[in-house]
Computed example of a mutant assay.
Amino acid sequence: MSSPVRFRLGIAYDGTHFNGWAKQPGLRTVQGVLEEAVATLFRKSPVHPSFSVAGRTDSGVHATGQVAHVDLERAHVAALESTRLAQSTGRKADELLRDRLNGILGSYTDVIITSCDHAPEGFDARFSASWRRYEFRIADALAVKDPLQRHRTVWYGPELDVELMALACQGMLGLGDFAAYCKARDGATTIRTLQEFSWRRDADGVVIATLQADAFCHSMVRSLMGAAVAVSEGRLTSDRLAALLHERRRSGEVAVLPARGLTLLEVAYPADSDVAARADQTRARREAAELAEDASNR
């Protein structure tokens, strides 16, 4: 049997009416909608696709730069390229797959395929990634509260001290155990490298935080946001924010801010020739970290 063909897809979605990325029985999710679209496209020769993704976003979280991969049998690729449209225009399978899926998703859809190409050898959307970048938007007392932006912005009453939050968050950068800021998942490590945690106001006064890390664990970004807001409110000190990195369990001092303010902006990858090595390296590092955590918890 011939090996499947892997495609790399860029995806954007409004997370408002999705129950997160991951497929769940009886719930509308981004993965579920996309896999149904692929099944519809190849309904004459049934296919059971499975999307793997760079960032498994939670319910209500948005994305403009999500990345996933999906494997298709060569017969399905050939079926795409043998259509009348492909024959008359010379368009390739990756472009056809993008356009056909977007057609199935509809002209007023809340999820869209922004790009599609043949994945390089060894590419894995999750494990080949070098880093992920998120943005969180808060409209405080100084900001314009735009009803048209309410689905992607958290409205917050008091004025936030952006300079104080920015200073406090600098002490969290680097390699650390973010267990205090994560919801535990069995077998998952909470060791991450936080590369950026910056703050600014846009032209409308909206407070925008940008966070970048090699990876984020469950609810980590929204918990970090809650901790930073607590510093502005005076409920936590800057020193306490950093000290929580030495605790090995989730902290009750940290609130999780609403999902609607969070958007996955970008996922970065090494050069195509290096994606396989990066995936192997990430898997090995995660396994080593998880084994070390298991040993320390015995």
Rank of each mutant, 00 (worst) to 15 (best):
H218E: 00
G122I: 11
Y13K: 11
T109R: 05
R133K: 12
L164F: 00
L244K: 08
L101Q: 04
R74M: 14
R132H: 10
T282K: 07
V206C: 12
G10N: 10
D214V: 04
P4F: 06
G15Y: 04
T29H: 11
A271C: 03
K145V: 08
N19F: 03
A242G: 06
F197R: 03
W155S: 02
V111S: 09
R100P: 00
G252W: 13
R100Q: 10
V38W: 05
S59Q: 09
M165A: 00
A209F: 01
V256I: 14
D294R: 06
H17E: 15
S2L: 06
I104M: 12
N19A: 10
G10S: 09
R201V: 13
P49D: 15
I138M: 05
A276W: 04
K44N: 11
R152P: 00
G187Q: 11
L27A: 12
E159T: 11
V33Q: 04
A227M: 02
V38D: 01
F127V: 04
E35K: 03
R185G: 11
A243S: 09
R137C: 12
M1S: 08
L41N: 10
E163K: 15
S219G: 00
I138D: 06
H218A: 01
R150D: 03
S115P: 07
T83G: 04
D117S: 13
F178R: 06
V206P: 04
A139E: 04
H118D: 10
K23G: 00
R91D: 05
V254Y: 00
A12R: 05
D272G: 08
L34A: 07
D186N: 07
E253P: 02
Y13T: 03
T64C: 06
M220Q: 12
R91Y: 03
L224Q: 02
K23D: 14
D140M: 10
L262R: 09
H151E: 04
T190L: 01
Q87D: 00
D214L: 03
V206L: 12
R8G: 01
A259L: 00
S2P: 01
P25Y: 10
R283F: 11
S223R: 03
G20Y: 11
I113V: 14
D146S: 15
D272Y: 09
R201W: 09
R133V: 05
L101P: 01
Y269P: 05
A79K: 14
A242P: 00
W21N: 08
A180F: 09
T89M: 08
L105Y: 08
V67M: 10
Y269Q: 09
D161S: 02
V267G: 12
P4N: 05
R28Y: 02
H246R: 09
R250L: 00
T114C: 13
Q24V: 01
R43K: 14
